[in-house]
Design a protein around this nucleic acid. Sequence first.
DNA 1: CTGAAAGCGCTTACAG
DNA 2: CTGAAAGCGCTTACAG
Lengths: 339, 339
Amino acid sequence: MRVTIRDVAKRSGVSVSTASLALNNKPKVSPETREKVLRAAQELNYHVHHTARNLAVGMTYQIGLFTPVSLEHTFSSSDFFTKLIQGIYNAAQDKGYSLMLFVADEAADVAAQVDRWIRSRSVDGFLITHPSFQMPYLDVLRTNAIPFVFVGRPPETGHTSPISYVDNDNVQVARKATEHLLELGHRRILFINGPARFTYAQDRLQGYQDALQQYDVSLDPGLVKAAELTFVDAHHVTEQTLEEQDFTAIVVLNAMQALGSIQALAKHGLSVPQDISIVASNSALTAYIHPPLTTVDIFPYQLGFQAVQLLQRQIVEDAIDHAIVPCQLIPRSSTVALH
Amino acid sequence: MRVTIRDVAKRSGVSVSTASLALNNKPKVSPETREKVLRAAQELNYHVHHTARNLAVGMTYQIGLFTPVSLEHTFSSSDFFTKLIQGIYNAAQDKGYSLMLFVADEAADVAAQVDRWIRSRSVDGFLITHPSFQMPYLDVLRTNAIPFVFVGRPPETGHTSPISYVDNDNVQVARKATEHLLELGHRRILFINGPARFTYAQDRLQGYQDALQQYDVSLDPGLVKAAELTFVDAHHVTEQTLEEQDFTAIVVLNAMQALGSIQALAKHGLSVPQDISIVASNSALTAYIHPPLTTVDIFPYQLGFQAVQLLQRQIVEDAIDHAIVPCQLIPRSSTVALH
DNA sequence: CTGAAAGCGCTTACAG
DNA sequence: CTGAAAGCGCTTACAG
């Protein structure tokens, strides 16, 4: 038999309303009464019935975690997503929210689905990863005035109103990577960026340029390449550039790209770091790769944690804001000074 | 203003109860009435309030997706998890369930948390990935008699009662991989298995043995190795075995291991498939690797889909059962006949 | 086939 | 500080 607040009230000899007040730590209840109620609850192993409470207060205490998984490449080769979710989950728990998972399938009519979720009052707000994804649901979100925050800087598409988001400091990611190589004496640095459709690629290019400028090195467009975050793409781009350009160092985005590059170099008799230095970001596989990669670490856990905080602020006080998570250079053996 | 079933009833000129009956497609309502109600609902853009309905029917229509993310290695190098979730999500949608995400943190007192979730009536049942994880919550699940199914065969720890689960046909995975190499004429096949603590490793070893036996090849214990699903571990094991044993082919578990092995071989002047053939399973990175790997594909999407079906059967009719998803050999250029 | 009523388990004004 | 009552939005016996 389920134990209800009724049982708790009865056992502690107070009314249901008083029991509720005590259980919810409301101010206007005497210490002794509260004590009595709490003890009774404990003895009966009482736990509030979420559904009932939610109905009464008109909230769901659920956050919709909305993920376009179809973009699997982006995540599959790293623990980015795992860490991100961990951060989201912990922050949500702290604030009394649960996470409802929504997987966006490109095929489905995402906008209509989002509309249904909102109208069926399933969530208090949304956390949306990867805003560079097509966003047909954006209008629905807005007309329903439901809180949401993006993980990743949304592209500028002439939004009328501002959007809450969290993101890595992608400018710094590329800047630190590049600066590190410049400090080691490298001047011709191949920059393998992500696809232009992602905002982080724009930001990282900026960081690369900033670093060069700081060291008075002029940018050679032939050293800036775009590639998907895959082994083959990096392999291909590296090999191709090898034929056209001289360079002594490479900045790549992630470990998969690093692996692809390293193998392309090996194929041409070049080894890392003896002949070419490499720095990557996103440390996922770093420990499992040979040689251990110098990386600019990003912090997806923090990203997730802060995303929830922003969302909660939007839910309770309607605040729109954004947060940028800093990054950190971790030197390892894949980079070496140029003689 | 929220539109409720009251509004629908009013607009269609029937009582609230009739409206409810019609909306839920209950049999005892005349076609004309149903039609009227449905039209009104449509016109008003009515959607049932989930929380209210759930409270009334005493269910949550939520499935708890319970994942020990701490085991990141296992998933990080593949799209296994992504596909799995996709399958789970789609099946859940089909059956009217939403997914509530629970991330198990080793540090936290998981059992106590599970207890809270159950008592607060947050879910109708659990889907639990990776049962080889420590399972201190198992007792809680059982004493509360809440439905749950494992993704992956749970280890035999003297359970009194049977447990529902889905799993890949891991015996066949290893068997097909090995048979393929045997057919190509290979006889000395290095088998790099996963860590012994996982049930799939037991199953796969079985498959390897079965295949050898079928071809009357006696098992050489020196060719059976355990490694984590990582680049370095596979690299290390491969290199080590190279010094002790002769072999012409390797069976590895996933693409990360394949990469590690390939690099170890390269270091010793051996290339794939000219000198050594390799077959992997779990096709995640296959397309991004050079050379393209012969794999035994597994189907995590199906795994997820079927897990939900089993759970739902357990919820509605208390049925305990299990399902095994078949696998499939995909020959590519990393394997070649022995001359 | 349809309607009035009770109830799911909680919270929150409103009196006292 | 405490209690009786109404209400959150739905569903489901129970009569008719």
